[in-house]
Every structure is written in structure tokens, then in C-alpha cells.
Design a protein around this nucleic acid. Sequence first.
DNA 1: CGTTCTATCGAACGCTCATTCGATTCGAAT
DNA 2: ATTCGAATCGAATGAGCGTTCGATAGAACG
Lengths: 196, 196
Amino acid sequence: MQAYDQRFQEVLDCAESLFARQGFHATSMRDIARAACMSVAGLYYYLPSKQAALSFVCERIFDRLESGSAAGAAVGAPRDRLAAFVRGHLGYLLTNNLSYRVLLHDMQALDGESSQGARARRRRYFHSLVDLLAELEPRERHRSRMAAGALFGMLNWAPTWYRQDRDGDVEALAARLTELFLSGFYSDALLARATA
Amino acid sequence: MQAYDQRFQEVLDCAESLFARQGFHATSMRDIARAACMSVAGLYYYLPSKQAALSFVCERIFDRLESGSAAGAAVGAPRDRLAAFVRGHLGYLLTNNLSYRVLLHDMQALDGESSQGARARRRRYFHSLVDLLAELEPRERHRSRMAAGALFGMLNWAPTWYRQDRDGDVEALAARLTELFLSGFYSDALLARATA
DNA sequence: CGTTCTATCGAACGCTCATTCGATTCGAAT
DNA sequence: ATTCGAATCGAATGAGCGTTCGATAGAACG
């Protein structure tokens, strides 16, 4: 039973890597089977369907993402918690190869109730940041929502231009972006209060 | 010959819409033919291949994107030009249904020299913003590059959370995000100069 | 009127896809 | 020693894929 679980995780590793590199629709069950060194029929012993493979992979990525960022941002002053969130989120995006792509590009290929679950989970993750920002600057909720969208955008886009050799290590980049965002966030709030 | 061009653009409209909604790999030539109300063989009178369809669609999107944002940001004070760029870019993303997705998700499916051309074009577009930011705060080029990445992230992510009824019209959102970004950009530069 | 060209089509080709079936191996339990 | 279940496989199934071929209708032109 423990051997089963290990093999199962290996299969998911292969699927995740392929989905991330080629996209869900461009990856065949034969690709996954080949990567996992087993026959196509053997693959179906672990995965009931291709959709299920995507669903499992998404769940696992959410788990890792949350344990890295949401968990690290649980205690302390709001500002430190935001910094921890950014560090965790960005750390996951930039140090797990391309697996973030599965959430960002392929999650939409989910259908049925799997998609409901994943979408709910993404909403929850998004709102954990909205709440954090509302604590930092408790004004209209609308502003927090927009700011969270802006911040997530900054972070999620980073993998497209980040390169270790030019942009320094991930910790430094996280600190930079946190600074950039917070300065704008506070100035903006100040400005809005002045003109209100 | 003018009738041909019009039909050709209609075909590209259909392809673009389908690629945007379902993704390139999940869209078949039969889907495109059905949407364009013609037979599959008839479709090949206008499109030499599915790859070419994607390539044409990408080119067209780049054209529209550049004429909207880069062109509007050609003259005036650097700050106004940045505001115009943001307005143009965001305007395209939020008012052309989902067609931005083709660039953001499906462009990677291009192969051969089409991909070279599209990638070069994207780089050029990216650097037009880097240059604009370097004009605003002419310090190390590295800082401009990072800031451009952050700003593009904020903008490109907007379609995932923006909803007209909650977040106001596009102009207002563009002004908001420009403000948010610029405040952070200037404070950050100030801070960097103070600690340097 | 005959020819040529444009735009279109039905039908097929060869291939790959996700999925399933029946059989097999092999270690563990009875 | 026999049984059993877990893990694996080769081969097939039916559907859909991108692409091509040969034909056709009609407009344009000599």
C-alpha cells in the first residue's frame, strides 16, 4: 500500500511535468505512460482518466502552494505576514520548474465537479490575500480586491521574465516586489483618502 | 480580391474566438470550419494549415495591440505616455472578449519560424515599456526591466478578476492601476537611492 | 460559345487519441 | 501447494484528428 502510493506520486510527477511543459491537451496518456516507464494500460491502474490526472495534479499543486505561502503568513504583524505570503507564493512559482503553468493555463480544461472544487480552492486562496490586505488598510473592500488582483498579477507574471542570473535570488525579488507593491498601495490609499 | 480578404478575416475571427475560448490544441479545424459555415476542405482554401491559422491570428492581435497602446504612447510627457500605454494595453485586454488569451496561452504552441517572429515581436513590445520606464526614472536598466515585468503582470492578470459591474469602466481602472504602480515605482526608486 | 479561374465541397487517408478487455506474472496468505 | 489479489501488459476499439484529392458550380473573359 505504501509502494502503491509512492508509484502513484511518481505517476503524478510525470503527468505534472508534461502538462506544465506541453499543456494538458498537447499531452497524451501515451506520453505520460512513457515518462513513467509503464504501458498505457498499466497507467490506468493508477489513473481512472486523463481528466482525473489533471484533477489530481491540480490538487497537489494547491496543497504545496498553500503550505508554502498561506501557512507562512499565519502569524505576526500584517506587514510581515504579507511579506511571508509573497515570499511563499513567489518561491513556489520560481522554484518548481514550470508546474505553476498547470494552474494558470490548464486548470480551465477541467470539467464537471473537479472544476468546481478547483475553482473554489482558487477563490479561497485569492481571498486569503484580499483579507490580508484589508487588514493592512481597512477601507472599502473593493480596494483590497483590486489590490489583490494587482499583486497576484505581479507575482504570477514573474516566471515569464525572471532569470536567476540577472534578477538575483528569489528572496531578494520577493522583498523588492513587496516593497514596490506596498509603497503603491499605501500612497494610493493616502491619495484616495485625501480626495475623498 | 476584396471579397476574398473579407472572407479571410471572417475565418480568422472564427479561429481567434475558438482559440481564445477553448485553447489551440482543443480546437479542431472542423470546429473552425463549422464556425465559419464552410466545409473543412473549403477552409484550406484560406488557411494552409492549423499552425498558419494560429500564426495569422497572433499577428493580427499584435497589430491591434500595438496600434492601441504603443501608438497612443508616442508623444507627450513620459508620465502621460505611460498612462496612455496602460490605457491602451488594458483596453485591448478587457474589450476584445478573450482574444488576449491566444497570446498569453497559445502562442507557445507556435513552432518553426512563425514562433521566432512572434517571440521577437513580444520582446519588442515588452521593451517599449522598459524604455518608457527608463525615461521616467533613468537609473539602472535592471530596475526598469523588473518594473516593466511587474506592471505587465498587473495588467495581463486583470482579465481574470475584472468585472465591469464591480470594478467600473476600463478607463477608471487603467487610471487606478497607473497610480498604484507609479506610486510604488517612485517610492521604490527613492528608497533605493537613499540606501545606495 | 468555350475556356479559365475562383470558391467550394464530399469523401477519403493515415494517424493518434482515450479508454477497455482479457490475460499474465508474482509475491503473500491460507 | 494452492489460492488470491495486486500490478502489469499487448492488443484492440471506435472516434476524431489534420490534411489532401478530385470534382463541381458559377462567374469572368476571350
